[in-house]
Design a binder for these strands. Sequence first.
DNA 1: TAGTTCAACTTGTATATACAACTTAGCATA
DNA 2: TATGCTAAGTTGTATATACAAGTTGAACTA
Lengths: 243, 243
Amino acid sequence: MTDPNTRRYMVVKNFIKQGIEDGSWAEHKRVPSENELVETCGVSRMTARRALDELTEEGILYRAQGRGTFVAPKKLHSPMLEIRNIADEVKQRGNEYSNELILLQKEHCPIHLLHYFDLEEGEDIFHSIMVHKENNKPIQIEQRYVNPKAAPDYLKQNFNEMTPNVYLSEVAPLTQAEHQIEAKEADPFMRVTLKLQEHEPVLSIDRTTWSKDLLVSYCQLFHPASRFKLTGRFTTEHQLTEL
Amino acid sequence: MTDPNTRRYMVVKNFIKQGIEDGSWAEHKRVPSENELVETCGVSRMTARRALDELTEEGILYRAQGRGTFVAPKKLHSPMLEIRNIADEVKQRGNEYSNELILLQKEHCPIHLLHYFDLEEGEDIFHSIMVHKENNKPIQIEQRYVNPKAAPDYLKQNFNEMTPNVYLSEVAPLTQAEHQIEAKEADPFMRVTLKLQEHEPVLSIDRTTWSKDLLVSYCQLFHPASRFKLTGRFTTEHQLTEL
DNA sequence: TAGTTCAACTTGTATATACAACTTAGCATA
DNA sequence: TATGCTAAGTTGTATATACAAGTTGAACTA
């Protein structure tokens, strides 16, 4: 039972999530009761209950004693991690994850980033560009500058095994992150890569991450803004400059 | 068993929380195992487990299979949290700010929000919808549910003087906020109000705010995603679950 | 008709049990 | 010494069972 998806309560969770996704149960509609799931899924009530409990905790369902369990209209609490791992997310949807490495090299640090990475002009930095795919369809472009001091072996990694995000969080555990979200026009590369229509905007997420006081990575993520539903969760504890 | 604190798993939770508070178990120290709690608290293992599970979910403990359950390091709490208001932002750009109140009323709390606001069915909540304008051009739709316990005089306010955001932060100082950013299709109301083109997406920001442990407000902000350049900046503190 | 009771269904709490999966320390062996 | 194995302890998953507590609608009664 190494694959999480073979676990019985995961089967039930996916069964419910699937039903919500394909419209079997609309918002505020009752999903099968615990006892009904015992019948249809062939699990014990406690297992069915665990599935419903977790989905409730994730904000996907809500429950009312004596009445039933219902589909929540909009997630108040996102089930996602604070920094999402796109590979896991794709797999969690039951789809196939793959990626394509466009660029991976050492280069002189761009001038406008020298200050952030605490580098002198002419010093090197790692630069990668990759495309993340779901069922072979491009869903995200990732451009990333990585601090050699924080991840000296970045260039040697095989990013089919492990996304840059996961690798970096292993070699330089996150202590702080800053995000900037922006909707903007796509450039020609994005338009071709993400198969965008004319004038279709992209949702851009700039993410800067630190490990202790060391700036580890500056990363830009681009998604099609209209065709995909993109959610992120941010718990702010310092400062938020808004709009 | 009407008092939640008489429930067995709550007894165990309080026992653990108490021990952490009075210093019996320091950060990263092991707390009693499930079987030890069976002995000392006189509950079944599943009940002890539920207590530890919930405390883990709350970020108070972390668990490692085969090793034990440990006290998680404390989250950093910064009392200062700034959410700048849109009126100031517009004025800072040298433009004229105005708004239009679409709806301001008391209504029964929607069922799916009862749990979050800690209300019973039939209890009332405040609901407002307004449009923020820059040079008389709509730039943001704000829909907001407000907890009457946190801001009992919300309905009496004149929101030309002070935006809901500013008013709320005065009567119930923010201690925590959570955001969810999403690009999605506009509904007809948004399309008309924000003068959107066909199929033009909106950038939606869901913001939930707390004052201490009290959920103050659940708010949705909608912006045209393509015509305006919208940037938000978020500083996140991450907690490590595995050490 | 209006109000009450009750049966059937729901979720909520609690226990007892079994086995799987993982970690660690100590022991046995090469 | 170094290596590998095992036993004991831990969390993780799953089942079966029982009763408590809240909801609903239908049958019953005044």
